[in-house]
Design a protein around this nucleic acid. Sequence first.
DNA 1: TTCATATAAAGTGTATACACGATACCATCG
DNA 2: CGATGGTATCGTGTATACACTTTATATGAA
Lengths: 215, 215
Amino acid sequence: MDALRQRIIDGEFQAGESLNQVTIAREYAISRIPLREAMRQLEAEGLLLFQPGKGAVVSGLSMSEIGEVIDLRAMIEPDILGKAIPRLTTADLEQAKRILDDYETAFKKNEVATWGEYNWRFHSTLCAPSGCSIAMGVLQSLHHLNERYAKVQISVTHWQERAAHEHREILAACRKRDRQKSTRLLQDHILSAGQSLIALLEQQRHSNEKTAKAK
Amino acid sequence: MDALRQRIIDGEFQAGESLNQVTIAREYAISRIPLREAMRQLEAEGLLLFQPGKGAVVSGLSMSEIGEVIDLRAMIEPDILGKAIPRLTTADLEQAKRILDDYETAFKKNEVATWGEYNWRFHSTLCAPSGCSIAMGVLQSLHHLNERYAKVQISVTHWQERAAHEHREILAACRKRDRQKSTRLLQDHILSAGQSLIALLEQQRHSNEKTAKAK
DNA sequence: TTCATATAAAGTGTATACACGATACCATCG
DNA sequence: CGATGGTATCGTGTATACACTTTATATGAA
């Protein structure tokens, strides 16, 4: 299921495109039964939508829905980080640092496909010690929804650099156990990334409309 | 799927109990295939957990997880209500009032099974005009998780009366389009209900431990 | 009796099969 | 030529079938 989810997030299937069960099942060398079960779970996560007689269709988020995902993350994640901070161990902080290092290495090598993965690993490494399993599940779901669209950001170099800088700042505040500062930085980080994402998507949509008109 | 979800919420199946696919499929006169698909969705909602070789097991929330669900609701729902308030129509407000009336009628008639339904309908009627579809989905999921445990509250008469009073107050604040007041009242409502729920569950757990010792 | 082991029963996980509905293609009619 | 209807193809939705796993039951030894 994770593999299929990643393929949807990676944009291999366009929004609105319906997934052929026979083909995909064959790709994983399984029958349609377990595939459909996985698809039903992805449906519950909001990535797919079953249309009667048409199977699973990749669901697309409207601009306002993308905004919602960001707002929810901006609301929940800093709160969870706040709960995690007193519980953060040195090992947690070291791992977060390692993830950032690896992320920057991957960035220099232009391994764009791994960006989303590193991003989530950084955020979740800092939040996980909160012990909030339900909230972490919600967050991960939101992150998956976000990631599909965030792919357009990975190519924008200066945004990458800004994100990297903000990550370092957040980590530094966590290291100091500065709850106020780290949660505020995290919230700003999510919201500013969200705003730049929405601006990019608006821009993209406009240029698409232009080319559509050109036809 | 909704019917099965309700049966789990209603407590027909105990936490930890595994659901017999053959039996349940027969009850709905379907085969195990669509049943399993429904179960997978309920798994993604956090109500079930598939254990390899053992099928779907009803998942139980720990006390801290129940607390998390309440905290998340207390964080998200007032925010959504705030966004909904400028968009609330007279029809929305009337419908909310009608739900409260029906709820109180049902309360007087002791129709306990309908409580959770009325509660969600009231909350969602006020929040839905926000147009936040993603957040509403998250909220509904959280509400389902909550509802299973909230069932212990329905028998506590004075809590019911307090909730009814708080609902009326929230509705009055919404009618006045008082964003500040209504969101604050809603947050207090969720948190105080949550606290009383946790207190009840703690109490229940203690008495269970005593009877367990008595054996 | 109690524990261990063998055997039977029940249940899950999934491949296969088939019926139904959607879609594409083509021929026919206006 | 475009529109309409018919047929063939493809794909979904789910019932059935079967292999494998877990659980219950029975049997025998300590």
